[in-house]
Design a protein around this nucleic acid. Sequence first.
RNA 1: GCGCCCGUAGCUCAGUGGAUAGAGCAACCGCCUUCUAAGCGGUAGGUCAAAUGUUCGAAUCAUUUCGGGCGCGCCA
Length: 576
Amino acid sequence: MNNYILDLSNFLNTFASFLESKKFISEINKNQISIDYSSENKLGDLASNFYLIINRKIIDKNFNFEKELNDKINSVPFIDHFIISKNGFINFFLKEDFVNNSLNNIYNNNFLKDINHGNEKKINIEFVSANPTGPLHIAHIRGAVFGDVLSSLYIKMGFRVLREYYVNDAGSQIDKLSNSLFKRYKQLFNINIELAQDEYPGEYLINIAKKIIKIDGDKWLNKKEKETMLYFKKFALDDIISSIKVDLNLINIKFDKYTYETDIEKSKIIDKLFEILDQKKLLYKGVLKKPKGDDSDWEPREQLLFRSSKLLDNEDRALKKSNGEWTYFANDAAYHLYKCNRNFDKLINIWGSDHIGYIPRMISIIKAIKNNEDYLNILTCQIVSILENKKKLKMSKRDGNFITLADVFSKVGNDPIRYYMISTKNETAIDFDLDEVIEKNKDNKVFYCQYAYARASSVINKAKQLNIVIDENYKFNLNIGISSEELRIIKKIICYPYLLYQACNYNEPHRLTIYLEDICSEFHSIWNKGKDNESMRFIDKNNIQGTISKLFWLESFRNVLYDIFSIIGIDSPEQM
RNA sequence: GCGCCCGUAGCUCAGUGGAUAGAGCAACCGCCUUCUAAGCGGUAGGUCAAAUGUUCGAAUCAUUUCGGGCGCGCCA
């Protein structure tokens, strides 16, 4: 009975149907019924707006709401009683036994005993997928952490998750990359050659060129162009992809599968996609509309188009360039067909906000393939600005001047990066202040929460030294040695399974950190009460029973913190 | 011109139909002989960008305006 909030919600829905069938009330919109477990203003343990909603739908004048609810509420085993407040909220109170048992489940790490939300369903989460044309930079970090934490969250909820990275190792950008590298190589032999404006100016290519020289010397200066460019392309890709992996590894991100665009091309799966689209009459040769923005060099040309406007997009989209090559979108669409064919129950993509415009066409492809537009879920991350000395750092692709993942890592380390990248809702733009995050003080929420963990651990360790231990058959009872402040935090602790469920269900891992900060704040507050009032201290040698009660919820609290830290991917320090 | 995201305290952000709009930082005032002061308690700080509408009820939904960000051809 962990997911009691859902149970109560189901009960209220059934109860509403009952009232409707008895003609006490006219029909209501059941989606409006809410259950609030976290409000600071609440008077009970769970609050619902139920009465507010049905109140104006009452058609039977003799209808006595309180009586009817009282008759039915007995079927909900965990509700003790309820009170309807003056303004119409129903405040439900949990049974003590239920709170005791729920805490017992947390104590035993049985967070998901009766939820099993995932039920072994297979999910593919594709994220990062940065082009292998340079090192990962700050814009990629957020999507990387978001995708990784979301994956962990789904795994926690009982799904089987495959983390996948799509490597765009084909196309003209890669040719530009190898050209740029070759020019750098030549420059190192004092050959006077300039990079073109749209080539890659970053210093990393100079380093890669030096590696080639170390291995091969000047042997590529006089080789045939085709052979040379093939070599430089492969060398650049191998080097950059492996350094991307190294960088991801810095913040403990590992992918289960890398899929290469070149392999998608070789597999000819695009022909299959072509067949599907053709069969559904979604392909035609035509001329795209003139764009609305800068159209100075626009020329109408006939090309192969996807009739996405018949589906969910507002324009048709090009699949082939006028020179006959597939567009990037065509390959990406083929890649998505490949994903569709791999028996996942659901696909999730995490994209940067700069790709938002591509969502309708990709969902259109999925709809064409699966006839189900909900099969692929595309989540976007807004940009991250880096602040240093209170100033936004400017990044310019043209100068090859950007803050890399490795830079940020060397300045702040793993925990703050991961914590801050998911503590803000993914659709909100973040200002990431390096100075604030480096300091290990109260400016820094990561340390605030880890400190709570360390403090809790230190009490538990001290209790062990004093030989105060919790017996295997111990039954927690909130009437023994538990203050009202502690009861408050205990009731928040037992909401943890529901929080997990919601964070996963809404794809919002930031809910974890909001909750985390809340319970840590409660904990620190209780801790400090022990300074003023000895009876509030956790360990009291003269009251072993009460001490054990406290240790029991403290262990449960620590379990929850450990679990959240492990999902976020940060350390759980027992000492700080 | 069009699409998407956003506008909440000085700053960074929660809250997205419900009870008196919250937290952290910054400011000010207090708390270490004690299980960790990387902490706690308190004070102050708001026209939820603006207007109109829908609703018993709007920061939340709709329309419009203003402001910011990201996109918008056969690039990837």
